[in-house]
Amino acid sequence: MPGRPTVEKDRGEAQINPTKRTVLEVQNLSINYISEGKPPARAVENVSFTLKEGELIGLVGESGCGKTTLMLSLLRLLPSAGQIVDGKVFFNGKDLTTISEKELNKIRWKEISIVFQGAMNALNPVRTVGDQIAEAITKHMPDFPKDKIQGRVIELLDLVGIAADHKEHYPHQYSGGMRQRAMIAMALACNPQVIIADEPTTALDVMIQAQILELLDNLRKKLGLAIVFVTHDLGVVAEICDKVLVMYGGVTAEYADVDTIYNSARHPYTQELLKAFPDLTKPKKKLSSIPGYPPRLDALPDGCRFAPRCPVAIARCHTEQPMLHKLGDMHIASCHLVEASK
């Protein structure tokens, strides 16, 4: 019965596989936004994660917690106020924070590409979607044979489930779900190894969201893509991710494989987020919310950034920032209480 979740065997396993090659390794990355006359805003602090071939990682956190900032920094696409102040980003062994612009341009779009947040609403309204995809191909691959471009556009549209005859249509003739598919097609234009999708389903309804999740899941199986899926919705990533990074106010709250995050989370923020979720197996249960609001970057608390909202905070939490504690091979949480119970 669909009302009651049933365990489906062949879809349940996460893909964490130690023998797979690491493609992206982010180490202790910190990013500040600098504005004159003000102290730097510490938008991202000491965040690390790794991504292997064919793996799908979920990056989850409330609005303003630094998800987009972190993703843009990986390809050094931050606005000029945003500066990487510490950390490294290794892609196939190369540190993207130090290589030249010229070298980085060989990686942008060709190896790692981003589906930008809200970009589906920024398609040019007076040009056909097919034209815009063709332009993405020529812009990133000037040597691409001209006579093969239209064929490639059709191939890309097909990959994301859009029939070829929609090529000549304008963005307003596309629904929201189709526009998002077109954005994914553009990101795939140069056959990248990694796709970063920043909130690709946030504005879409649940059925279209399910379609996009299915599409991304199929693409990684078919093309061996590694995917970073950015969302504020912890439920969405449970469906397809292998591991999850939960961010709070610019820092890592918890980082673990998907099963650990949903069944043995140790950070109070992760635990509270899970409780805020409607559970259809208990429809009468009142939802729990997390009172208060995320910290403002210009007025960060002295201790743990979550302490002012944390239901189990102790005195120390308000004065001292917690470190990242390793709780297992693939499990990290930044909480003083975790350390105490270790």
């Binding site: 669909p2 349940g12 629904s175 649940v206 919705d233 469906e239 949903y262 979720f277 559970d279």
Partner: peptide
């Protein structure tokens, strides 16, 4: 209704279940 119910994300990978994903819009 059955399809709409089946695609509601369940925040637990152990409860991943069959989703009835309607195609198209």
């Amino acid at each position: 209704t059955k399809a709409l119910l089946s695609v509601i994300p369940v925040p637990n990978p152990r409860l991943r279940r069959e989703r009835i994903i309607l195609q198209g819009e």
